[in-house]
Write a protein that binds this DNA or RNA. Structure first.
Lengths: 337, 337
DNA sequence: TTGAAAGCGCTACCAA
DNA sequence: TTGGTAGCGCTTTCAA
């Protein structure tokens, strides 16, 4: 087993003070004279003492840990998100207990560890929670926040990109460019992200009297590739394809290229997320940039406010983002092409 | 603050047993009669009781937590690795305290949290540790293991792909195909991965009397793209480019395409990692597949053995992997083209 | 098989 | 400003 680590008592003995004094030295804002503080610090660093976070968490009922559950998904966007979360939380003094889940709905046992370790809050990324898990967390008074997902059934806070409005604007952009045959390749059908993007896109175009062809892409490159082939082999080939995310759009882009179609002349493609690859010259994908920094910041702030019992209204928070125009769509407006 | 959660005492009262009995019910392998066990379990689930992992960790001096430090890097390979680690560790009953680092060398303060929370071991991915951090961990008797990195200075366990031998075999493959003008685009120069791949590649070719052109790529797409342009604009254009990883190779691939060069006729490209994107039809990148599953498994096993004080020899563990041939290199052998 | 009590390392109260 | 002491929720010894 582990070697017993140095504790406050040993430091106290060496420094000729009481153990309480040692504790105070390591508690910011405590009253300790400069002289004893030095003495204690010296003894502590000599012995290599560090306060035990477990014991501290136990007595203070505050662990400084946040549970982060992330859906396993092959999308660089979420890797970036993960990085920003860990860094942002660390700046606020929180540590991350991490769990990766394969399911769209976080399972009971995956949340159990969070409860047992007394995390102060839980962030769920790109996944949902079963309602009994939400209840359980609420009973334990542990705030939860969903990132880039929401659910009307669950009374959870959430932060997402305003997917509906973004898709609406993308539709507008394509329509104004003269596209009249448009297609949407979905993500996973049961995700709010994919649904909202589809609704925003279709609602705009329906208002214009344009019908949208829908194909399922499942948020995978392969799925999108096949979906795009289906679309592009139709008699009436779509002039524009909107992919539920960048990976989807890249699948569509490559499918089009495999059919010797020119981008953007024969078909234009738009994605969502603005992952790094979208900017690669070979892709140069027009896409919607989610303001990740802002989204992460809001998520963390909301969570911490909840932890500190500042009242926060539980309505889903939406942030906008912006369209990044690249070569996969036409540069200039060409009305009524 | 948090609502005080149910503790073992409350369960005990409800079930009319002592608190020790409740503890025993939740300790596998303890002696409790079937009848009291049922009684306690019923009371526990009625109250929503879960043992407090902090208190348990404090008394048992065993937290079931492992620290995972990962270098922030825009490479899907490590996202996959992260997923496999969390899942693999969970199967062994360990939870993951996660930290993302921006530096090539994990900093003191980033490891501090691991010490304070009494993690039982530390896994470091794609980064190194300063030697005083290693000392500190060793003094605290916390085993560390490096994943895909090693250092001769640090006396740390490590698990990596046998990069040297892999690169050697890649060189052999390209040489046997008739390539005589070859180039290597590096990753970050100070990483053992990039260095070993370079050495293996060059050593083989030097033995054959072939010189290799080296360009710096820094493990980024953009860096590799520029490096490849430099290479491909030379008078004597290389016939084959080996990229330090897949992202690098994809940068080179796209650079070649931007110059209207045909792949693999004009130039062949090989990568390393076999990330999903390498298989995408638009890329169809020949690459070296690291046996991630095996590497992760060995890493976890070695770490757990160390935790349990089974003696493990500290020499770096190497695993092989295999070449995945795709369209970015020629299919058939063409000797002396 | 069960209960009482000690103690893991810490913070926080109360006295001095 | 400091020290003594109680107690956070748990496991584990020792007795019964």
């Amino acid at each position: 087993m582990k070697k017993k680590s140095v504790n406050a008592m040993e430091v106290a003995k060496l420094a000729n003070v009481s153990q309480s004094t040692v504790s105070r030295v390591f508690t910011p804002g405590s009253n300790v004279s400069e002289k004893t503080k030095e003495k204690v610090m010296e003894a502590a660093s000599f012995l290599g003492y560090r306060p035990n976070a477990l014991a501290r968490g136990l007595i203070m009922n505050k662990t400084n840990m946040v549970g982060l559950a992330m859906r396993e998904i092959q999308n660089p966007f979420y890797h970036e998100v993960l990085g920003k979360f860990t860094k942002g939380l660390r700046e606020k003094g929180y540590h991350v207990l991490f769990v990766y889940t394969e399911n769209d709905e976080i399972q009971q046992e995956e949340i159990t560890q969070f409860l047992e370790y007394n995390v102060e809050g839980v962030i769920v990324t790109d996944a949902l929670l079963s309602s009994n898990v939400v209840t359980q967390l609420q009973e334990s008074n542990i705030p939860v926040i969903l990132f880039n997902r929401y659910s009307h059934e669950l009374s959870c806070h959430s932060v997402s990109c305003d997917n509906y409005s973004a898709a609406w604007q993308i539709a507008d952009y394509l329509y104004e460019q003269g596209c009249r045959r448009l297609a949407y390749i979905t993500g996973r059908k049961n995700t709010s992200t994919s649904q909202d993007r589809q609704r925003g896109f279709c609602d705009y175009l329906q208002a214009k009297g344009v019908k949208v062809i829908i194909e399922e892409g499942n948020y995978t490159y392969e799925g999108a590739y096949k979906a795009a082939l289906n679309l592009l082999k139709r008699n009436e080939r779509p002039e524009a394809i909107f992919g539920a995310n960048d990976i989807t759009a890249l699948g569509a882009l490559d499918a089009a290229k495999s059919l010797q179609l020119s981008i953007p002349e024969d078909v234009t493609v738009v994605g969502f997320d603005n992952i790094e690859m979208a900017a690669w010259p070979a892709n140069s994908l027009t896409t919607w940039e989610q303001p990740v920094d802002e989204m992460v910041k809001i998520t963390i702030e909301t969570l911490i406010n909840q932890i500190n019992k500042k009242q926060v209204d539980a309505k889903p928070k939406l942030v906008s983002g912006k369209l990044i125009k690249r070569d996969s769509t036409k540069k200039s407006k060409v009305v009524d092409k």
